[in-house]
Structures are given as C-alpha cells and as structure tokens.
C-alpha cells in the first residue's frame, strides 16, 4: 500500500479546518503533544503537521487565488529517512507511512533539511522531530466505525477537498481522482516522488448564453407585450 492524501485545489477555500483538526487530533495523538510556544504572547507559534498557504497566480483582474494545504507527502523516495542517522525516521513497509520514533530521535534536524516540503518540525520542548502521521492512530482503530477510520483533516474538510486512500491501488478513489483530474505532485523535479497529489483547478465550465429576442428598447418591447396576460 501507498497510503496518502489527494488534495483538491479546485475546491480548497483555505479555511484552515484541516490544519486545526490535525492539531486537535494529534496533540493527544501518538506524536503528541504538539507544543505551542508563547500561546498568548508576542509571537504565538507552535508545532504543526499541516499548514495552509494561499497564492495568487497571474495579475489583476485575471489573477486566480489558490490555496495549498501542505503536510507530509509520505514520499516514495523519502530522503528524510535516508539521512536519518539514528533510524528514528522510517517509512513503514506495510503502508508507506513515514514516521518518527520519538524514543530514538536525537533532534539533529537533518531530516527536516532533507525534506523539500517543510513537513517536519522539531518540537523544541521534547527535542524530537515531529510530523504528519497520516493519523496512523485513527485509520487502523477498529473501535472507530469504518467511515471514521480516516485522517482527522480529511474527515473535517468542509469542501471535500481532501481524500485519503491507497495510491498504489489503481482502483482506489484517490488513484481514480489523480487519473481523472490529472493530479500533480509538488516539486516533481526533485525526484522524491511524493505520494500525496494535488488536483489542479478544474477548467472553467462552459456556460452557454441565451440570446432571447433581439435586444429592443422600451417602446418596441411594449408593443410586443401589448395585451400579454397570465392566468393567476
């Protein structure tokens, strides 16, 4: 299996729900807590596994705004794992999820350096590296009803822009989406071969115009409408 996410940039409105849901679930999750620094102070910030950024493409008035949530892409070629000296970082053989064993990490940051996507953040309190777990602590939990065994960010997304599944299985919903909507990877040229894909904005739907009668001014129209009646 290659479990991962497919994110739809055609419907993502940049609402940050997935980011906060991630924070909420994971702060009490297997990699938790996700430390918050200066929570009520001058520079509020904290460990996050999923950050949402907005971009503008082109110039006014033809500019398009796109929103791009980013979490770990669970890359096929996960250099973050290759460079890890302690073996704390690893990619699960079963499902391709990339994880960090908190008991083994020495906090050298090298994996974060090796990650092109900024998916890894050091918890400055525990001194260990943390990152998206693909909600490994939800997706396999048999005490949850099947439809809830999905990442917190996916379950919460109000625009249905996040899809979870096995991108190795050609028949999975996610693989189909990637095919049908020509899903793309971020920074493909780096060769990390991220499992997560992004669905680009759909082409503008074609809208036909109804021309109706020839455009006419008041007098002429009134002539046409003379005696018009409708049954109440």
């Amino acid at each position: 299996m290659k479990l991962g996410l497919v994110i739809d940039m055609d419907t993502c409105v940049g609402c940050h729900a997935c980011g906060v849901a991630c924070k909420q679930w994971n702060t009490s999750g297997t990699l938790g807590p996700l430390t918050d620094y200066q929570p009520y102070g001058a520079e509020p910030n904290g460990v996050a596994f999923n950050r949402i950024r907005s971009y503008e493409v082109g110039v006014y008035p033809n500019s398009k705004t796109v929103n791009m949530p980013m979490s770990c892409m669970h890359c096929d070629t996960a250099e973050c794992v290759t460079v890890c000296p302690t073996g704390a970082s690893y990619k699960r053989e079963e499902d391709g999820i990339v994880l960090v064993d908190q008991d083994k990490c020495m906090g050298c940051n090298l994996c974060a350096w090796a990650c092109p996507y900024g998916a890894r953040e050091l918890d400055e309190d525990s001194g260990t590296m943390k990152k998206c777990t693909l909600c490994v602590d939800r997706i396999y939990d048999e005490n949850l009803p099947p439809e809830e065994r999905q990442p917190a960010c996916v379950l919460t997304c109000p625009t249905g822009a996040r899809h979870f599944g096995d991108l190795e299985d050609p028949d999975s919903n996610v693989s189909r989406l990637v095919r049908d909507r020509n899903g793309q990877q971020s920074l493909p040229e780096l060769g990390y071969n991220p499992v997560n894909h992004y669905l680009p904005p759909r082409p503008k739907p074609h809208a036909e115009v109804e021309s109706g009668a020839r455009s006419a001014a008041l007098a002429e129209r009134m002539k046409g409408w003379f005696g018009k009646a409708v049954g109440r």
Binding site: P85, T86, G87, A88, D103, K104, C105, M106, G107, C108, N109, L122, E124, S126, G127, T128
Partner: peptide
Amino acid sequence: LANPKNAWRAFF
C-alpha cells in the same frame, strides 16, 4: 542536537 541523550544511536 536537541536531544543529545540519543546521540549514541547515530551509529546505526
């Protein structure tokens, strides 16, 4: 190192 107590694991 943010967590030097695990430095010894760096050999593996």
